[in-house]
Design a protein around this nucleic acid. Structure first.
Length: 611
RNA sequence: GGUUCGUUGGUGUAGUGGCUAACAUACCGGAUUGUCGAUCCGGCGCAACGGGUUCGAUUCCCGUACGAACCGCCA
């Protein structure tokens, strides 16, 4: 027997038992003729005390950091206790030890505050994983996994596996492809998600399906994007949007409860996509803080709200506003005291290529009720007063205004809002605010260089329109007469029966009620410019299934890695994946991807033609 | 595909157009009977690659490679 206990479990009540521990040497502190060793395993650290009688053995068999050590002896109460360790009241008076394995000197220190940089830690990930910081993240990941499974199991969901070697569908993200040796010249694709399979399972009557499953997308990476990532993938039969929303906010709340001990009792807020864009410039707003946009001018329509015409700011001879498609403002609370240097710095921030604005207009709403703006030349005190009033700015606020093309400006002000929220400490790590964003447009207008514009599915081509929009979809041709006027086309107004769950400004899940009628599905393919033959070729199996009694169904998928990262208070999902890829999709530990042997190419009958 | 930043001992950083390139940590050796980020003393060890400017480049410029963040992309 290698051990009787772990390094994290012994307490005063175990005094004076004989125990054997096994683990890694964390540190060695030699103190005259006695030696202290911190022995570490997954469960904690226990201090070993080696007396004078073992000095000869230590001289013969010197220990080092990360050596694998087995030690047996007596549990004894410490004379100096260490309240920072769970085992800090006791130590093991070692009678004998065995070096189970030696270790080279690690390239960085295996400590909470390691001296290792990111590159090195990734290269030696197996050492990095020994550190508490990483271990805690993986423990949290497992806790989220368990909480989700428990909840879904309780609700009658069945975990069903779907294949990883599937057919490529060049819709959406790029596929990872895998050559087939037995079928020369043909390729499997790795699934971007089990979407079509879970729909087939619904047709087969497995009315509550889930899977915590790897998905693969061959797209460029980010701090929160990996080429292989994990989803909590779910689908249900005989449900409407409302059923799904309730079921899965229940799941997230259960996860909050189990993992973070948070009782999220209030209902999850809901917001239409239009509202989100209008008030936050963003389809995944962070609602931990307010600072809503004021639309001074915009082509955007919002139900029940007048389009912003620019009346308030027009006619002052200020070309930047007069010529802009969109002018939007935020009132930053309590920032009127910002110095010129600070506002210049914010101006530079919005001019960065990533934001790409030409400039920034500022209005300081001074505490005494006066105004000082960067456009005093054009706007007198009354006009500034009126603008401030429409922004609902209070004395002491700083109004920031951006102007330009609708899409870019709205995105920029949204980024600026988040940045100012961050600077003012309004995005607290330990505060969690959930939000459903609903009623997305079903279609988006995509224009690519040198190609005519076309409709693309915003979510995916199996998303159903809102019941009230089905007629509009069926009775209109997707044909857009004039490229400029696509916004006037009936399709532009069709809303999807789709929903995103947003946590603190991050999309953590998204789904939809699916199309289950064959004619509507075909109309959808029409709209996306996919011929009947093409649709049959790519999705024939699904269309076929829809002829044999497909039930109404819908589902959702959660980004598991991202959810874990947010719950763990991190921006980067890499810290929550045991073996992640770097920015360029490489595994620096394995040095993958790599070339393959000539005989492998030959078996696959593949020749490289590298450019 | 693009933008920005970075690359200096094993590791993390600092500084500098010129003299022995600094600090911390790790590592090695020594001292130490209550440490736990031990302490004290001593020691080892450094400029990614290629080109340019210059009397002289670790420093300035260009390129390559690698890394990070972001934009495009991610139905």
């Amino acid at each position: 027997m290698y051990r009787t206990h772990t390094c994290g479990e012994l307490r005063l009540t175990d005094v004076p038992n004989e125990v054997t521990l096994a683990g890694w040497v964390q540190t060695i502190r030699k103190f005259g003729s006695i030696t202290f060793i911190d022995l570490r395993d997954r469960y904690g650290i226990t201090q070993l005390l080696l007396g004078e009688e073992l000095n000869k053995k230590l001289d013969d068999q010197p220990l080092g950091r990360e050596f694998v050590l087995q030690a047996s002896g007596t549990v004894q109460e410490r004379s100096n206790k260490n309240p920072q360790l769970s085992t800090g009241d006791i130590e093991i008076r070692v009678k004998d030890f065995t070096i189970l394995n030696r270790s080279a000197v690690p390239p960085f220190t295996i400590q909470d505050d390691t001296d290792g940089g990111d590159d090195l830690r990734m290269k030696y990930r197996y050492l990095d994983l020994r550190r508490n910081a990483v271990k805690r993240n993986l423990e949290l990941r497992y806790a989220v996994n368990r909480a989700a499974r428990n909840y879904l199991h309780e609700k009658g969901f069945m975990d069903l596996e779907t294949p990883f070697l599937i057919r490529s569908t060049p819709e959406g993200a790029r596929d990872f492809v895998v050559p087939s040796r037995m079928n020369p010249g043909q390729f499997y694709a790795l699934p971007q998600s089990p979407q079509t399979f879970k729909q087939l399972l619904m047709v087969s009557g497995y009315d509550r399906y889930y899977q915590i499953v790897k998905c693969f997308r061959d797209e460029d990476l980010r701090a929160d994007r990996q080429p292989e990532f994990t989803q909590i993938d779910c689908e249900m039969c005989f449900v409407e949007q409302e059923d799904i929303l309730r079921m899965f906010e229940g799941m997230i709340k259960a996860i909050f409860k189990d993992v973070k001990g948070i009782d999220y009792t209030e209902p999850v807020e809901r917001m239409s996509w239009e509202e989100a864009m209008w008030n936050y410039g963003n389809d995944k707003p962070d609602i931990r803080f307010d600072m809503k946009l004021t639309n001074l001018k915009s082509p955007l329509k919002k139900e029940g709200v007048q389009r912003a015409t620019g009346e308030l700011i027009g006619g002052a001879g200020f070309g930047v506003f007069d010529n802009a498609e969109t002018v939007v403002a935020i009132a930053v609370p309590g920032a009127s005291e910002y110095t010129r240097k600070q506002t210049d710095e914010i101006t530079d921030w919005v001019k960065r290529p990533q934001i790409g604005m030409q400039g920034l207009v500022t209005i300081k709403c001074n505490a005494d009720g006066s105004f000082k703006s960067s456009v005093d030349k054009f706007y007198g005190p009354e006009k500034l007063q009126a603008i401030a009033a429409s922004c609902e700015a209070k004395p002491g606020d700083l109004i920031l205004i951006l102007a330009g093309r609708e899409e870019r400006t709205r995105k920029a002000i949204s980024e600026l809002r988040l940045e100012m929220g961050e600077r003012l400490g309004m995005r607290k790590k330990d505060e969690f605010r959930l939000l459903w964003v609903l009623d997305f447009p079903l279609f988006e207008w995509a224009e690519e260089e040198g190609q005519p514009g076309r409709w693309v599915a915003r979510h995916h081509p199996f998303t159903s329109p809102k019941p009230s929009d089905i007629d509009t979809m069926i009775s209109n041709s997707p044909q857009v007469a004039n490229q400029e006027e696509y916004l006037q086309h009936p399709y532009a107004g069709i809303k999807a029966n789709a929903y995103d769950m947003v946590l603190n400004g991050n999309e953590i899940g998204g789904g939809s009620i699916r199309i289950f009628q064959r004619d509507l599905q075909e109309k959808m393919f029409d709209a996306l410019g996919m011929s009947r033959e093409e649709a049959r070729h790519k999705f024939g199996f699904l269309l076929g299934a829809f002829e044999y009694g497909a039930p109404p169904h819908g589902g959702i998928a959660f980004g598991f890695d991202r959810l874990c990262a947010i719950l763990g208070g991190s921006e980067s999902i890499r810290d929550f994946i045991a073996f992640p890829k770097n920015n360029s999709g490489r595994d620096v530990m394995l040095d993958a991807p790599s070339t393959i042997d000539a005989h492998q190419f030959s078996e696959l009958q593949i020749k490289l033609d590298l450019k």
